[in-house]
Design a protein around this nucleic acid. Structure first.
Lengths: 156, 156
DNA sequence: GTGGGGTCCGTACCTAAGTACGGAATCAAG
DNA sequence: CTTGATTCCGTACTTAGGTACGGACCCCAC
């Protein structure tokens, strides 16, 4: 069993900064390993690196740190109140499935957008909003009316 | 064609606060309708309500306002550089598909967690991290070792 | 055994995305 | 035509999630 990684190596392995790990420790999202007797430096198990990666992943999927903490706290062991764990896990699963559904809608809209691009004829969809809302096939030319609101200087 | 909604009604329809709409206007995420000649109040088309809903949805899926602006700016009309639009749309689509993949992994892990709950025998998975990492079926009892890091006071 | 990098810890600072505030103007119901 | 709710606009404040800084300490290679 390898002893573990120093915080710097752990951070590099997880793709975050050292300060981020410390921040997560303060938020109790990851456990702070004990400092060895007398003096020395804390060593992080590979486990923690996985945990941090999960946190970053979940964050990109729109979960807040609080929600991620709830996800990580879910554990099915016979010593816990199973019906409670089931309930919370089921709620999270619903959440996840709703997100998947919406992403699939957006994905389909993007595909329509891509397909409509060098249209040579039809020109069915023009913006994502169009592709999402009146996504019914055909419809002829009733699209691309007001070409305002394009890219022009957002955020500084 | 209905004239439109006042900012308050539009906000209620979109499920956000008035101040949020004004904030989005400042960020150029939604267009500010013109104030009628002389005096009066701005009227928002139903269109804008849809747009705001989309923004909120996309945000829950982990897109930043900047990314959402990019998504909304994508439009396939023959007057635009199609290869550029295709490229950006394809990149966004990849993004979306990666997110779906990761959500499906998490969903599967949650399902394993739920299934393992009133285990009566096996007890295969215990935390999401376990269910995500050594998710191979069977394996016997090597699970649920250290029940530390449970729920105990995060964020005030 | 010393020099340079890494760790430790506390505090300060930063960006994104709102949210609240306050005073003037405007609208709509009675 | 008053009164109460909205709108309008600018500026200030807040919260989440980090990031940076500074001084003390530690550890490893030379």
């Amino acid at each position: 069993m390898t002893a573990g990684l120093t915080i710097g190596r752990a951070a590099r392995a997880a793709g975050v900064g050292v300060e981020t790990i410390r921040f997560y420790e303060r938020q109790r999202l990851v456990a702070q390993p004990p400092k060895p007797e007398g003096a020395g430096v804390r060593l992080y198990p590979a486990d923690t690196v996985e945990r941090i990666r999960f946190i970053k992943d979940a964050q990109e999927l729109g979960f807040s740190l609080r929600e991620i903490h709830e996800l990580l706290a879910l554990r099915a062991d016979p010593a816990a109140d199973c019906s409670d764990v089931r309930e919370r896990a089921t709620a999270k699963l619903d959440d996840v499935q709703r997100k998947i559904q919406r992403l699939q809608d957006i994905g389909a809209a993007l595909e329509r957008l891509i397909a409509a691009c060098p249209g040579r004829g039809g020109l069915h969809a023009c913006s994502i909003m169009d592709a999402l809302t009146h996504h019914s096939g055909d419809g002829g030319t009733a699209c691309c009316s007001n070409p305002s609101q394009t890219t022009k200087g957002v955020h500084r």
